[in-house]
Amino acid sequence: MKSNLTWLPATLLVAVTPVYVYAGQYATADEAARRTFPEATTFKENVFQLNAEQSRAVSTQSELPDKPILWRSVIAFNAEKAIGIVVFDSVIGKFELIDYAVGIGIDGNIRNVEILAYRESHGYEVRLPAWRKQFVGKNKSSKLRVSDDISTISGATMSATHITDGVRRIVRVVDQLKLLGKL
């Protein structure tokens, strides 16, 4: 198949710029769990909370601040045997909220890290008149088309920093669960 490039006419912003949000819905919690443990026969919902001491241990080991929340997870079973856990979490990136899932095998190894949903919001600029003014009258006839989809946007997007931190924390959280004999 031949490569092809067609330039599109340049479009400029119009006077009133709405706030746009780029969002991506990638996987449901169920899908992430099934993709992580395709060999699992059943999944059991498991909501848990660590006590203060366990939370501190997680914080020390992961060198991250404490996150004393109710953790959402599912435990994967093959027949009657637990084979791993998928923990769900959210992080705030530069300008975005990211929901993700971390699958950890019973051996403690990370099996999968998958983004569930992503929502990028920039609202602050357009509220500022100075920012808006620079586009007024540039080209009123053209209209900016905006994709609600991040797939075909070229240019810096999200950084994985906060997810990487989150994964490190979750590995330690799961360690605590194992210590408790809850996995």
Binding site: L5, T6, Y20, S121, W131, R145, G155
Partner: peptide, 19 residues
């Protein structure tokens, strides 16, 4: 689409591409 440099929360369509 490419992000508008002065307003990176917006993106402008630049080219239609295949392969």
């Amino acid at each position: 689409s490419v992000r508008v440099p002065s307003a990176p929360h917006l993106a402008m369509p630049v080219a239609a591409i295949r392969e």
